[in-house]
Design a protein around this nucleic acid. Structure first.
Lengths: 185, 185
DNA sequence: CAGGTCATGTAAAGCGTTACATGATTTT
DNA sequence: AAAATCATGTAACGCTTTACATGACCTG
């Protein structure tokens, strides 16, 4: 007779837990470093703040997915974390699930554009120009980042980020041109 | 002598408050309708749930930015909201501020791609394919929406949404091809 | 008359940022 | 000696979703 299979006990990762496990797998061991690296890499599609990172590291530790050891730098306290086998499993499980991945965008520039019928044509164009400038600044910041030649995960997401930001910027520029020319036809 | 100018009292709108005021300006008057329209229009860059909409309508009313009247449909209760002059001012103020607009993206597909160095090459390709399919579905859904010819705000945001989603989908398709061909060179 | 849509709302929980607090070390 | 960086953490607050609860009206 078939024994009811014990559930593999997949401890569902919180959103911030996901990025933390990944960073630990990459050898980024402290809360501080995770924050630095996130800000220099995943930030444009996945942010994290200290207020989430430190408590989440502790939760992950009490869940047995990570372990920490104290490695002070001189008199400066420092906790270095690493994945346990269970933690690595959880990371791989997450990377392999086909579950509908989370996708959320909140773009106030677009919202203003959406409601721009309630302002003047000039205001709409100004809005578009602001969106364009922002996109260009973001594009410059992304190009500044390392990993151009990187053919691994980080390089791929950087390339995708650059591609969509360029597309966004170009669309804004063109819409701006169209509206400026045909001002009131 | 100069009298200290009274602050124009800009009642700062909460994120959901912004979309609500805009929708009311557009003549969408009930919480229910706002939700329906948001889901059919701004959802891809600005979502809202009932749990936010109804309480926020009340807050806006006690702040004097909107007023409601009861307009039951038969025996079915129904509150219809509209902007007050102060509400219209608040909307226009918001639309005209040059304040750094909020932009937040959370894309789990990209996060998985970022960490795909910790899985197999096949898994990375599967990930890319999943991202591609999702983008295609989204593209189809956007194209389904009305407003193709609309040259106003809603039409513009729809066009931008289509442009970036197409770009996203194409990038995924190309990356997938590249990785499938050069599998292990 | 069952199932869908119209319509409103609340409670709990989860997620997240911001601002603050602390203190050591390193760089200028 | 000041300023920046390394390093950790908490408390308060705000935003949002989810799940639930309720009930009327409409369509097949």
């Amino acid at each position: 007779m078939s024994v009811p299979r014990a559930e593999p006990e997949r401890p569902d990762l919180t959103p911030t837990g996901r990025v933390i496990l990944g960073m630990l797998a990459a050898g980024i061991g402290t809360g501080y470093d995770i924050k630095q690296i996130v800000d220099r890499s995943t930030r444009h599609f996945w942010a994290a703040s200290y207020g989430q990172i430190y408590p989440e590291l502790k939760r992950l530790e009490s869940a047995g997915l990570v372990v920490s050891r104290s490695e002070p730098t001189g008199g400066r306290a420092r906790q270095v974390y690493g994945l346990t086998p269970a933690g690595r499993d959880a990371l791989e499980d997450w990377l392999e699930t086909g579950d509908e991945p989370l996708y959320e965008l909140r773009d106030e520039g677009m919202l203003k554009l959406f409601f721009s019928d309630f302002t003047s044509p000039e205001q709409r164009i100004a809005n578009l120009r602001a969106m364009h400038e922002r996109a260009q600044r973001k594009l410059a910041a992304l190009r500044e980042l390392d990993g151009k030649g990187d053919s691994g995960g980080p390089g791929l997401t950087l390339q995708l980020g650059i591609a969509i930001t360029r597309c966004y910027a170009e669309w804004c520029a063109e819409a701006e041109r169209r509206l400026t020319d045909g001002e009131d036809e």
